[in-house]
Amino acid sequence: MTGPGTQMPVAPAQAARTEAVISRLQLLVTRKLDGLLQGDYVGLLPGPGSEAGESREYRPGDDVRRMDWPVTARTTTPHVRRTVADRELETWLAVDLSASLDFGTAQWLKRDLVIASATAMAHLTVRGGNRIGAVVGTGAGVPPKEPRSWWRRKPDGPPPPPPSAPVVRLPARPGRKEAQALLRTIAGTTIRPGRTDLGALIDMLNRPPRRRGVAVVISDFLSPVEGWARPVKKLGVRHDVLAIEVVDPRELELPDVGVLTLADPESGMLHEVQTSDPQLRQAYAEAAGQQRAAIARALRAAGAAHLRLRTDTDWLLDMVRFVAAQRHARTRGTTR
């Protein structure tokens, strides 16, 4: 794992492209989302705050952890304690850039949506001294165990260098310039073969313990659910959690195009699939539906807000609708 402020080497041409992409995304986000948030302090995920305020009657959907038991006992009617929005919040992003994210068959690559999501979060949360940081999984994964002779010093020279760490940590800092530098680093991160340990990546937001804030997990969540469900649930105990799921339509159903050769970007294995078989296409769609349903159940059980972005739709419109729905729920007094 690299230390704070560590930069990955980026070619000049790639750096110029990255800068152009970030500038365009920030312009899009500013035009579309600023109007929704005028006069409000809340961002993409309206956090309830931690400072106690007035009480009101309980409504279906309210967080039972905010029950005001003394008022409930006096009035014999369930009440919840309102909270005042925190200032100078800290937002952390867990950005999964596994090899499976370097894929797309529609308007965007899944990687593009990851960067777009991070840009929207940075724009909407870096206000009034708020800080934003990130941990980025590069897809390198855990290297396989080498034989004992791999690390022993040999007579003909020193041992080879250890494998590079799969995670980049970017410290939380306030200010728009610092947020733009964070986005440039995320956009310029090289995706490596292998799978990021999503559970370990999310758990890095729990260590060390931080003050209450907003935690955003951006991934396609293709890792086994049992590997990341518990860390997300643990994260939701202290923070408001937003899970942004990135999906490509070919991950949900297969087209009828005859024999199709598929390459697993994480393992490099090749598979030939006869897509003209209707039973195979149906079985694939059912398995994909069950997988996405399991992801949604795990996030719902963890109390996380869930935003799904697809590469074949207008991601910005989906995000605007999500912000509007969150604000509507906030107005009605519900938490999700």
Rank of each mutant, 00 (worst) to 15 (best):
K145N: 06
G133C: 11
R210M: 12
V64E: 10
T76D: 14
G303P: 12
Q326N: 11
E251Y: 09
T77K: 11
E245C: 13
L252H: 06
E54K: 14
I244Y: 00
V29W: 10
K154M: 11
Q282P: 00
A179I: 02
A301Q: 13
T196Q: 07
D102K: 08
R195W: 00
I22G: 07
Q14A: 12
E51N: 10
R31M: 15
Q38P: 02
Q279C: 03
V168F: 02
A329E: 12
H123G: 00
R211W: 02
L44H: 05
T335F: 15
R24D: 14
H306S: 10
M204S: 08
L182A: 08
P158H: 13
K234E: 15
D264V: 14
R24K: 05
D264S: 10
T76Y: 05
T196A: 05
L235H: 06
H239W: 09
T334C: 05
W228M: 00
T76G: 08
T30V: 07
L101I: 04
I295T: 11
G188F: 08
P265R: 10
P209H: 11
P9I: 06
A94Y: 05
L33V: 03
T105K: 00
R59S: 09
P224E: 06
A122C: 03
L97V: 04
D156T: 01
P158Y: 14
I244F: 00
A172C: 08
P144Y: 08
R310Q: 09
T185P: 00
L36K: 01
L27S: 13
R153S: 10
Q326F: 02
M1R: 03
V95N: 02
A296N: 02
R210I: 08
V10A: 05
F103G: 08
D68Q: 08
G61N: 09
I202K: 01
G175T: 02
T75M: 11
E266Y: 12
Q326R: 15
D240T: 11
T76A: 15
R31P: 11
D40P: 01
Y41D: 15
A287D: 10
G133L: 03
L182H: 01
L183G: 01
R332M: 05
K110P: 11
G129Q: 05
Y41W: 10
R327V: 09
A122K: 01
S267F: 15
A283Q: 14
G128E: 11
T189D: 01
M204H: 09
L222N: 09
P163E: 06
G3A: 11
G157I: 01
A243T: 11
N206T: 00
L93G: 03
P231A: 08
R56H: 12
P60Y: 12
P161W: 11
Q326C: 10
G53D: 14
K110D: 09
E178A: 15
Q38D: 15
V136A: 07
R310S: 13
L260D: 04
S23K: 03
G53P: 07
P255W: 08
A20T: 12
W228T: 02
T189P: 04
A116V: 07
R211H: 07
R17M: 05
V126K: 00
L97R: 05
K234R: 15
S164F: 13
